[in-house]
Amino acid sequence: MDLIKWKPTELFDPIAEFDRIREEFDRMFGMEPVITGLFDRVKSPAIDLVENDDAFVLTCDLPGVDLKDLEVSIANNVLTIKGEKKDTREVKDAKVYRQESWFGSFQRTLSLPDAVDSDKIEAIMKDGVLKITLPKKEEVKPKQIAVKVS
């Protein structure tokens, strides 16, 4: 059961290698920040996906994204998280000293296995973290079979 496209990391990728070297240097000289936020990885939000017996639980970092600018949808077992991150600072003629974050639109798509019950999906946004619980269909949940002594 493949949930997402698997990208082998051990294959030599020259571009990734440059990124790795740069990160290594940044770490060595203590250059901040260690993370670059929402667009840290390939300009899409970072996701954790955990599978347990009852459900898949997705956690996604979306700091500064307003609920009204966020859209989560599912079609043909493909989950899409998309939205826009806006700068909410209301200042005019600001002198910018440092700008590490990124504003703009983002999108992330995940292929889900058929086993997910798309009617029972629950999504909660709290403190800039989106948590989506995708319950598994009853028939795919592991069942315990009681063995009786005859």
Partner: peptide, 16 residues
């Protein structure tokens, strides 16, 4: 511990 991403600007006598 990691550093959070930060933006710093100055406007109208304030540092934001």
């Amino acid at each position: 511990v990691v550093s959070p991403v930060a933006d710093i600007c100055e406007a109208e006598g304030k540092v934001i």
